[in-house]
Design a protein around this nucleic acid. Structure first.
Length: 401
DNA sequence: CTTCCACAGGAATAGGGGGTCC
DNA sequence: GGACCCCCTATTCCTGTGGAAG
């Protein structure tokens, strides 16, 4: 019992002695809100102006924020609301800020549950009619005269997955004032998808879109500046060479100036450097970090897949890169037979293939082969060794190999 | 130019998980 | 307990379709 801790001792000692490259890891977390946000003054001012009626206790316009991932939408929104919260507190008023990510929440219902929880209401995680949840929230707001700002992140997800457009939750929320005697609820919608307006119910759009603000992607130079600011608070001085910073910025900027990605690269690179007892985060670790992030993401994604989807993924991997839905389905069926699992129907597999495609684990594009029909051209995006590794760690999937 | 394949993907339905309220 | 409701998976049935073969 006593001896077991030996290999851990050095790790613990290192952590305790404060002999770390980091001075404040928090500053590199995705939910960290820094004291100032470079290159977003314009957006901050606009949002501030649009929301300023809060200070006179009246309802601000609804607001839509557009921009690609990592362009600062979420952090700017949270930052501004934090400032408002501080100010209103000073004048012994208060606002309630609720946040929900529609994609992570997964459904309208759970977005509303997030909202309810932010208002410290009890709410079962499933079971109630949506109208009932809305009614309870409205009652709470009315009774306590609450001023609520509700941030709905990745709101495009709701628009695209709307099934019954008749009792639309967004529709109701945007007209909440009709149900409220006191208080109000304003919505800040955040979307990565610049075209998502096309999917949105026009009635909702007209009331959602009272104001909109565009977030352009950061340039590589801007990313470097942002990283520098973060490094000041996150790392010991002089532990991150400028080459490393530029490489992070360049990698993250190559697509569309994704600050989240840049910061994540830096964090992981720092952790890798620290683990190898390095005194500074040299460039090499950025490349390692880039690979590690991808690998971890894929590993995690595959690991959490249900058994049928694992089988489908393996079927894709076993076939060659130009297989069709039919090919994959045949292979899948033989795999199922191997472990005596009841195969699902082809219709279902077609759907699962689309899911794997959106997860980025496979590539499934629709092609037409004329007389030979219309199908998906399917190829795996995961290296075979990764699949094997995950499956070996999973006693149920193991048998498929 | 027309045909016709091999599916895509929507709709209706069911069932099993969860819940509320009366 | 019964009448509702939501969510997810999965099935069955269905209509739609781009473009190479003919």
């Amino acid at each position: 019992m006593q001896k077991q801790s030996d290999p851990l001792d050095s790790i613990f000692n290192k952590a305790l002695s404060g002999d770390s490259l980091f001075t404040n890891r928090q500053a590199l977390r995705t939910d960290f809100i820094p004291e100032n946000l470079p290159y977003r003054d314009e957006q901050i001012t606009s949002i501030g102006q649009i929301l300023s009626p809060i200070l006179q206790d009246s309802k601000p316009s609804n607001l839509l924020l557009y921009g690609k991932t990592g362009s600062g939408k979420t952090v700017v929104a949270k930052y501004v609301l934090k400032k408002f919260d501080e100010t209103t507190r000073k004048h012994s008023k208060s606002i309630s800020v609720a946040y929900s990510n529609a994609r992570l929440a997964g459904s309208e219902y759970r977005v509303l549950v997030d909202l309810a929880h932010s208002l410290s209401m009890e709410m079962p995680f499933t079971g109630l009619p949506i109208s009932e949840v809305l009614q309870r929230i409205y009652n709470n707001i009315s009774e306590n005269n609450l001023k609520v700002i509700f941030i709905i992140d990745e709101i495009d997800y709701l628009a695209k997955h709307a099934k019954s457009s008749n009792d639309d939750m967004l529709y109701s929320l945007t007209r909440s004032s009709e149900h409220l005697k006191n208080g109000f609820i304003s919505i800040i919608g955040i979307s990565n998808d610049l075209h998502f307006k096309n999917f949105l119910d026009p009635r909702v759009l007209s009331s959602m879109n009272e104001e909109e603000i565009l977030f352009p992607p950061y340039t590589v130079n801007q990313l470097s500046d942002i990283l520098n600011k973060r490094i000041e608070s996150a790392f010991k001085t002089k532990s991150v060479p400028s080459g490393t910073i530029n490489l992070c910025a360049a990698l993250a900027g190559s697509e569309h100036g994704d600050a989240r990605r840049a910061i994540e690269l830096l964090r992981v690179a720092g952790e890798l450097a620290e683990r190898s007892d390095e005194k500074s985060v040299v460039e090499k670790y950025v490349k390692d970090a880039s690979q590690k992030i991808d690998k971890d993401r894929i590993y995690q994604a595959i690991k959490t897949l249900p058994i049928h989807e694992k089988a489908v993924l393996l079927a894709v991997d076993n076939n060659n890169d130009n297989s069709t839905t039919g090919d994959v389905y045949n292979k899948y069926q033989t795999l199922c037979k191997k472990i005596s699992l009841d195969p699902l129907t082809q219709r279902r597999i077609s759907g699962l293939l689309s899911e794997l495609d959106t997860q980025g684990l496979i590539n499934a594009s629709i092609i037409n082969k004329g007389r030979h029909g219309r199908t998906k051209k399917i190829s795996s995006l995961v290296p075979n060794e990764t699949i094997v590794k995950v499956f070996n760690d999973d006693p149920a999937a193991n048998l498929l190999l």
